[in-house]
């Protein structure tokens, strides 16, 4: 569904990501792991169209979207849950969802909104509340819900669990697994490698912008050395 091929990107002379290739299939989770500053967020933002590619290609259903604007990518099915959630803090939950569905017009938005509220009943409870006053977990749900309002085929999630209580992390993962079962393709960036490995169908590990490990979910779960070799930084620190 989503193919990233030989992607290079970064700000200015600093190349954040070098020669990265990965695929995300419908109804599957690809986990993009690695220590802080490895280039995971740059990759996500490049796929969403907010960071320019210096080389390589991004394809959705076989068609290149590398030249498309961020809006165009949203319209074609790229959904973004950005690092730090970035909900519109001055807007209510309802208004955040409205903006999420902006590309598809009013009527489509109404139908999608009821699905989002069914997936995250907490958002229905907080419907008129300002997003800035929500808890971290609720903001995460809102960031996911907002992305879902545009009816994405691929969901890019930059840190699902960062800073959340374990019970909330469970809820968020459960919701994402629901979406995956419905056929959404998910690219999951995580610092919480344990949780990501549990659910991933394929795994790519970045260190300083270079791909250092690539395997199926099965293989990576059997590979006891993986966490120690590349992902131990967080656990150690």
């Amino acid at each position: 569904m989503l193919e990233v091929e030989a992607l290079h990107c970064g700000y200015g002379a600093l190349r954040a990501v070098q020669d990265l290739s990965l695929r995300v299939e419908a109804g599957r989770i690809t986990a993009l792991l690695g220590p802080n500053g490895a280039g995971k967020s740059s990759t996500v933002m490049a796929i969403a169209g907010h960071v320019a590619l210096s080389a390589g290609d991004v394809r959705l259903d076989g068609e290149s979207i590398a030249a498309a604007s961020p809006v165009e990518r949203t319209r074609r099915g790229i959904g973004l849950v950005p690092e730090g959630r970035r909900v519109f803090s001055d807007l209510s939950v309802a208004e955040n969802l409205l903006v999420g569905g902006y590309v598809h017009g009013r009527d489509a938005a109404r139908a999608r909104e009821s699905r989002v509220l069914a997936l995250f009943p907490r958002l229905a409870e907080r419907y008129r509340q300002r997003a800035g006053t929500l808890s971290g977990g609720e903001q995460q749900m809102l960031a996911i819900g907002r992305a879902l309002m545009a009816d994405p085929k691929v969901l890019l999630i930059d840190e699902l669990s960062l800073g959340l209580m374990p019970a909330i992390v469970d809820q968020c993962f459960a919701a994402v697994l629901d979406l995956v079962r419905e056929g959404v393709a998910v690219l999951l960036v995580e610092q919480n490698t344990q949780r990501a490995l549990e659910h991933a169908d394929s795994v790519v590990v970045l260190v300083s912008g270079h791909t250092v490990y690539r395997a199926s979910g099965e293989e990576s779960r059997r590979d006891t050395g993986l966490v120690d070799s590349y992902l131990g930084l967080r656990e150690a620190g």
């Binding site: 907010h50 809006v71 949203t74 001055d90 807007l91 208004e95 903006v99 902006y102 590309v103 545009a150």
Partner: peptide, 20 residues
């Protein structure tokens, strides 16, 4: 709708843009 779009842009222009 336009008013909400306006406030979204003030809050986070990049995200607002990516939602159309």
């Amino acid at each position: 709708r336009v008013g909400v779009a306006w406030r979204a842009t003030v809050s986070d222009p990049q995200m607002a843009q990516s939602f159309g």
